[in-house]
Design a protein around this nucleic acid. Structure first.
Lengths: 206, 206
DNA sequence: GCAAATGTTGGTCTCGTGACCAAGTCATGT
DNA sequence: ACATGACTTGGTCACGAGACCAACATTTGC
């Protein structure tokens, strides 16, 4: 095994861990299996990480970062409706192509929620792990698009972003349960429609 | 310990298991803890259930049944919009008041998905566990309400029902992550609005 | 080119925990 | 009193986490 800096080695192990957890689930992602997948002895793993909690958090971070990268190709010139549809479609494609991983990230998220205090005493797991992703990227993309259109949305953009993100969370379960890609894809179209309708100023109310 | 029929004993244990899983999570719901909570020795638990998988499935079923009962008071005379809002509000109240349980049910669901073949070889976990709940109850309530209004929805009612159910799934995570009830409640209002907008026949398209 | 720091190996040990089972005991109806 | 079903006890077996270690390899600074 080649010589790597501890940082590089950590990267390699976390990558392997992401692979393991995507296929085996959180419960099946034992330190031994991860070490095995990374091609390093167990001792190395304990040399690189204080404990499994630390590793888990890094997996969560890496997973979200991977997801983030799916949104890099977003068209930053498009109008509001086009942007909504593009974000939803991109998100959907990512889930479809990585649903094992996304499911596991949800398991990890639940784990983090349940072990908040033990894992990150006093800190806000959610804000730390997710805000850079959902909170910023999607909300700001939508806000910028709305601004380009001179659109003052009927519902605040951050609320629309959360609506989008968490409907997609539901979709992960839906896909895992039914394995019906066509139906799930139809749901994403529905979601895009809904977001557009919610955003447009309405006749009836303010 | 009093003598009970095996069926009664099973009921008691499943009840205890639901309590344990709601507070400790799936990983923390060990046979020992469950037996402890039920006030029976560990052996009794293995006397009553073939194995833990069987118990898990029963917990899942009980959890969903509990949830089902929240919808018993639905107004079966109301129109479409009122029914949508009532279903969403009822669902939301249940989640808010039982979010530990709902979170655990999602963990169990993931477990069932990952162990499909081992647990229910050949059978469809999802259809068996969830269809009686979401698929039937909510979809049929909405369909009946639409019919009362003479409303031919722009989107098929079953799709609206799935949209509703899985947006609520996302909400469970959202609530667990943020603990921000007010924000989550606003999201439910948004969801109801979206469903109504999606259902109404639109000007632009067919 | 040498020494010190850093990373690697592979193995072992303990500790806790989890699922599960076999053989026994007890209650209850007949 | 005795058969049967209901429960108890005490254990087995497997496995994961985490810690430790002693020798070995590779860099890096000097």
């Amino acid at each position: 095994m080649t010589y790597l800096s501890a940082d590089e080695r950590r990267r390699v192990i976390v990558d392997a861990a992401v692979r393991v957890i995507a296929t085996e689930g959180l419960a099946g992602a034992t330190t031994r299996r991860i070490a095995d997948q990374a091609g390093v002895p167990l001792g190395t793993l304990h040399y690189c990480f204080r404990n499994k909690d630390e590793l888990n958090l890094l997996i969560l971070g890496r997973g979200h970062a991977t997801m983030l990268s799916a949104f890099e190709g977003l068209d930053r010139e498009a109008g509001f409706e086009a942007t909504v549809r593009e974000v939803v479609a991109t998100y959907w494609r990512w889930i479809r192509d990585h649903h094992g991983l996304h499911l596991s990230l949800m398991e990890l998220l639940m784990w983090a929620i349940r072990n908040k205090e033990a894992v990150l005493p006093g800190r806000d797991v959610w804000a730390e792990v997710n805000a850079p992703f959902g909170g910023d990227l999607i909300a700001s993309a939508l806000a910028a698009a709305a601004e380009r259109d001179g659109l003052r949305t009927a519902v605040p953009v951050p609320e629309l972003a959360r609506f989008l993100i968490h409907r997609m969370d539901g979709l992960v379960l839906e896909l895992a349960e039914t394995s019906d890609e066509a139906s799930c894809e139809r749901q994403t179209l529905l979601l895009a429609d809904a977001l557009v309708l919610l955003a447009l100023p309405r006749q009836g109310s303010g």
